[in-house]
Design a binder for these strands. Structure first.
Lengths: 181, 181
DNA sequence: ATATAAATATATCATCCCGATATATAACGA
DNA sequence: TCGTTATATATCGGGATGATATATTTATAT
């Protein structure tokens, strides 16, 4: 799904500026399964405007850059519906952390524990954030997505907590063996 | 982690051609947390060769393009170790499926069930593949990574199976309400 | 009181990545 | 026999990433 389509989706929830869309991806309910930076959002909005899928009104502000508030058009809604109608692409889980753990024997001794600890903390924080999200007024879709996220991130936290010691010990054993060799 | 670094990692496991590296990403133990197509692997190998991180020997074959077998150099190993020494970037889970479910009210009636069913099947297949992987001779790192994957994909399957009906019913209710309105 | 960071708001740019496409042949099954 | 899969390389356009630039206010910290 390209950034243009996701922007259209966000705009079906209400008018927004590029900056606000970015915040949705960073802090809002979208952050766990999609992402886009300014470098993709601004060009996307420009193109959506060219295609007449959105309109914009510039709002002057004191001592700040003008706000560009975007509104989705009926054509934009139709395009978004059409895009959703196609079978979604495959889910992707990408983890440099797991790559590092896979090649764990290339890591300096203390770093395995530190890395796992840090990642477990990160997953725990994200999980707590999802749990604390106010579900009042949310529709069935957003609730399902939020709970799916909790299931996944919860499983990650649980696994890291239950299996970290085994890996750390096995790495420690290897270092000992190498030292006495 | 860029494709060059991941290629170096694969090459620490043994010499390989670009085609074989691709297969590792597609079928091997890497497929659940990293990915790269030919369009990234071949340029990456070319650059690694320029940087003297790999050497290559061309193996002529009958009626086939020459095989280019790449071997990692000591400098390549050092570069890979240095790259792993840095704190890994954040894990990313990206899902067009969840985006579609989030905007579930834009989907045609039957498609919600079909979409969830298809995705549950996909997660189940991936999970079974991970479970069937031969762990004999694997080190602690690869085992940890494989089991982490199983925990995550298992949680996804479980969630989809347990919650699909609730979402489908709530969508059906909405269609009824809209019809009688 | 003053420095420093963070938030608001836009935008660009190089670099890299993804997916599609091209080329060529062997092997295998329908 | 005809289509598909596997082997093996490579390129190319469009798009995404991450860093950087600009400018001001507000909040936090020293």
């Amino acid at each position: 799904m390209d950034v243009r389509t996701v922007c259209l989706g966000v705009l079906t929830l209400g008018d927004a500026t590029g900056y606000e869309i970015r915040k949705m991806f960073e802090e809002g309910p979208f952050q766990y399964f999609t992402d886009a930076g300014f470098g993709s959002i601004y060009p996307a909005l420009k193109k959506l405007h060219d295609e007449a899928y959105v309109t914009l009104r510039e709002q002057a502000q004191d001592n700040r850059p003008d706000k560009k508030v975007y509104t989705i058009t009926p054509a934009g809604r139709a395009a978004f519906t059409a895009a959703l109608g196609k079978a979604p692409g495959l889910d992707k889980f990408r983890s440099d952390f797991l790559l590092a753990i896979f090649f764990e024997h290339f890591l300096p001794p203390g770093m395995i524990e530190e890395t796992i600890e840090e990642r477990a903390r990160w997953y725990r924080e994200k999980l707590e954030h999802m749990q604390s999200c106010d579900r009042a007024g949310w529709g069935a879709g957003p609730v399902f997505v939020n709970q799916f996220g909790q299931a996944i991130y919860g499983a990650a936290v649980k696994f890291l907590e239950e299996n970290r010691d085994t890996l750390i010990e096995s790495a420690a054993d290897r270092y000992e063996t190498e030292a006495t060799k």
